[in-house]
Nucleic acid binder design. Structure first.
Length: 757
DNA sequence: CGTACTAGTCTTTTT
DNA sequence: GACTAGTACG
């Protein structure tokens, strides 16, 4: 019987075969760590007779979890679905949904995202009369988040503050914030981990249950774990000690959000009997690229000693190019890609353009559009954080379970219903006084004497929500969402007050409906519940846009590039003040600069065959033109590895402005959105198809309806009616129908789903 | 209560 | 330069 580990090298084998007891795999960039993990899982099941049910594999992102799940499924035949592959957060949610009542929460708790917590914080600052100009909401939130990462309570912070005014205030706000979330039966992202650890500590029998369940634990990207995540894993593994962590201290780039690099550096101290395996053979890059990466990272102190090698051969030099402006830089990137494409050396999908900040994508995008190169920007604004999507989600949350005050308040006046801040405050006061939720208070509006005439406006809102609820039993989720949009005339209202980006918003809503349909298709007939959908969406940042099969250049930040590889990589904006960022240069903490250097290391090691580093002498940052010297990271690469267009000592440092030869072409925002459209439009559908999800019925059709003026049609809610008028709207046909008893309605053909009779 | 303008703010990012 | 939040006014 041929073994699953035969395809591994010696080191990889050593790691895969060590199944009992703690194991640290130090996996350098491109050393095949995912392969080791999946093979190790297969080995555990096939050769050691481990029940798949007893295996837990934890990742940070949904994307990583999805990829691992895929590869495990491919490798392990029978029983692979019972392997628990999930992110930290979704793992905790699953545990908490079962047992959180043991520590005083309701099991249908809400999960507050970053936006929600900001809203909560704003309210607290107002109530405590904190001057948010002096101390920002964001500062409080990040202080609280950091405290939670370190498992510190508000009381702990208060003790630590030792009377210091600022620190005391943070502690007070923290306590208030906790009270507020508890009142709403809500958890923030940090709480998901924290409360699970709390639960495990308070209820040893529950912990034991999960220890028995997860006898073999694997953690990916271990260098990015924070203290509470470490504790979660430690507790789970403390019975059987079969814990395997994989990571690379040189790729730790999330310190700013609480990652504790000591978790990986001190692993052997916590587990003295741990076996350590270093994977140093790189299967990705040429020797020159690796040498450049090694040279840069060797400037960092306090790392685990290792150095990557490859048998891929020397390869070409690393290219470096200093440009006059960001426009010229973008042109250089575009021209190089076109030239390579023409000469048949690299296709579009072989190339990736990386940068430090998302804002840098704009100029690049403009040039890509002009040149006609197909591209995709990865990341940017979180899909589910967009206003229109959050609005619809708030409706769904309210219908599902009106305990989420934030959701109810979000939509009570969206679209406008003439319910203002004063009324909302009065309802809230009433709710506080009677210890009921905001929504419950709404249902008793007529009892609130202070509201007066406004009570009349609240009634229809409550009725509407109740009507939606009553329809839950027979409408599909898709129908429900469309019903919400129609009943509230959401799109019409949106179009009337913001014509500029209304079109993009409508497209987002359509994409959202696609997502809903995809969810329903995934589930078995009766399984597709509203709560289930909201659960899934709460922990997903973006619609997965990894469409590697389409032939496009990918643009993304260095952070989002982690874990990916490309034959040709551009790293742009290699300038002091931008990369490394100004914040980190001026910081008195030298470890901040080391994190930037690790980021540079991550960037360089994404490249398989060719790497081009570019910088601009002149760049617009935050509406201000800056003149920056080339990044220090450039100078850390031995000149012998680079092909410099000018000798190194002739590279111009920041010696002031030079007249720009040609006026940079800048597109108007309309031109831009027009030009960008075809790519965006194709991105969504392709994503769905590539994941193998049926999008169900055809979305809003741009074709003409199959009925005309005067025809009788049927609508799902209003019944039969007569078509009065059909107008070609911005993106769809607007149909005016007389429904007799229901009156005359104007609706979008795509949403209305009218049937000719 | 809603709108229109002004002032201030900007890292990186996932859940 | 772009976005958002807050404020002044109708």
């Amino acid at each position: 019987m041929s073994s699953v580990i035969d395809m591994l090298n010696d080191k990889q084998k050593e790691a895969a075969l060590h199944t009992e007891g703690p194991l640290l795999i130090l996996a350098g960039a491109g050393s095949g760590k995912t392969r080791v993990i999946t093979n190790r899982i297969a080995y555990l099941i096939d050769e050691c007779g481990v029940n798949p049910w007893n295996i837990l594999a934890i990742t940070f992102t949904n994307k990583a979890a999805g990829e691992m799940r895929q590869r495990v499924d491919d490798m392990v035949g029978y029983g692979s679905d019972s392997i628990w592959v999930a992110t930290f957060h979704s793992t905790c949610v699953r545990i908490l949904r079962r047992y959180i009542d043991k520590i005083g929460y309701d099991t249908n708790f809400a999960i507050y995202d970053t936006d929600d917590t900001k809203t909560v914080m704003k309210g607290i600052c107002k109530r405590l009369q904190i001057d948010t100009k002096q101390m920002h909401e964001r500062a409080f939130l990040s202080a609280i988040s950091r405290a939670k990462d370190e498992m510190m309570t508000a009381a702990d912070l208060m003790l630590d503050a030792m009377g210091d005014f600022g620190a005391t205030q943070v502690a007070k706000v923290y306590a208030e914030y906790e009270r507020e979330l508890k009142k709403c039966n809500a958890l923030d992202f940090d709480d998901l981990l924290l409360k699970t650890v709390e639960l495990f500590k308070a209820w040893p029998d529950i912990l034991d249950l999960y220890q028995e369940r997860f006898k073999y634990i694997m953690v990916d990207e271990y260098q990015d774990t924070n203290t509470v995540q470490f504790e979660f894993i430690r507790l789970l593994a403390s019975k059987y000690s079969n814990i395997c962590v994989v990571g690379d201290d040189d790729q730790s780039i999330y310190k700013f959000r609480g990652a504790n690099i000591r978790n990986i550096l001190d692993f052997e101290k916590v587990y003295p009997d741990a076996k350590v395996v270093k994977l140093e053979q790189n299967y990705r890059s040429t020797q020159n690229i690796l040498d450049a990466a090694n040279a840069v990272i060797s400037n960092n102190a306090g790392r685990k000693d290792k150095s990557l090698w490859t048998d891929k051969g020397e390869g070409g030099n690393v290219h470096f190019r200093q440009c006059e402006s960001s426009y010229e830089e973008a042109e250089y990137v575009v021209d190089t890609i076109l030239k390579n494409k023409r000469e048949g050396r690299y296709d579009y999908s072989d190339c990736a353009v990386l940068y430090r900040t998302n804002a840098q994508a704009r100029v690049l995008e403009e040039k890509f559009i002009l040149s006609g190169i197909p591209y995709d920007v990865v990341g940017g604004v979180n899909f589910y954080a967009r206003r229109e999507i959050k609005d619809i989600l708030a409706y769904l949350k309210t219908i599902d379970n009106a305990r989420d005050d934030l959701a109810v308040k979000r939509i009570i006046n969206v679209p406008r219903r003439g319910i203002g801040a004063t009324t909302i405050n009065k309802v809230q006061e009433y709710a506080n006084a009677n210890d009921i939720t905001f929504y419950e208070a709404l249902t008793k509006a007529e009892e609130i004497s202070s509201i007066g005439r406004s009570a009349v406006k609240l009634k229809p809102f409550v009725t509407m929500i109740q009507v939606f609820r009553s329809k839950l039993s027979y409408l599909t989720l898709e129908e429900l969402v469309k019903d919400i949009l129609e009943t509230t005339e959401y799109i019409e209202n949106m179009e009337s007050d913001s014509t500029e980006d209304a079109q993009a918003r409508v497209e987002n809503i359509e994409e959202f409906i696609n997502k809903v349909v995809a969810y329903e298709d995934e589930q078995d007939e009766d399984e597709a519940s509203l709560s289930g959908f909201l659960e899934e969406v709460a922990l997903v940042a973006d619609i997965d846009s990894a469409d590697t099969d389409s032939n496009k250049v990918l643009l993304m930040t260095l952070h989002s590039a982690k874990g990916l590889e490309f034959p040709f990589v551009f790293i742009t904006g290699m300038e002091e003040g931008l990369f490394p960022s100004y914040m980190n240069i001026t910081s008195d903490d030298p470890s901040e600069l080391e994190e930037e250097r690790r980021l540079c290391y991550v960037g360089i090691t994404r490249a398989m065959n060719e790497l081009t580093l570019t910088c601009a002498r002149q760049r617009m940052i935050r509406g201000e033109t800056q003149f920056n010297a080339p990044s220090r990271f450039i100078r850390e690469i031995p000149p012998g590895l680079m092909d410099l267009k000018v000798p190194a000592n002739r590279i111009r440092m920041n010696d002031g402005p030079v007249p720009v030869k040609s006026k940079p072409y800048a597109m108007s925002s309309r031109e831009r959105s027009e030009a960008v459209k075809p790519y965006i439009a194709s991105a969504g559908s392709r994503t769905m198809a590539s994941v193998g999800i049926k999008t169900g019925k055809e979305m809003v059709s741009s074709g003409a309806p199959d009925y005309g003026v005067g025809d009788r049609v049927r609508h799902i809610k209003f019944g039969e009616g007569v078509v009065k008028q059909i107008d070609k709207g911005i993106r769809d046909y607007e149909v005016t129908v007389d429904f007799g008893g229901y009156g005359v309605k104007k609706m979008l053909a795509g949403f209305a789903k009218l049937k000719k009779i």
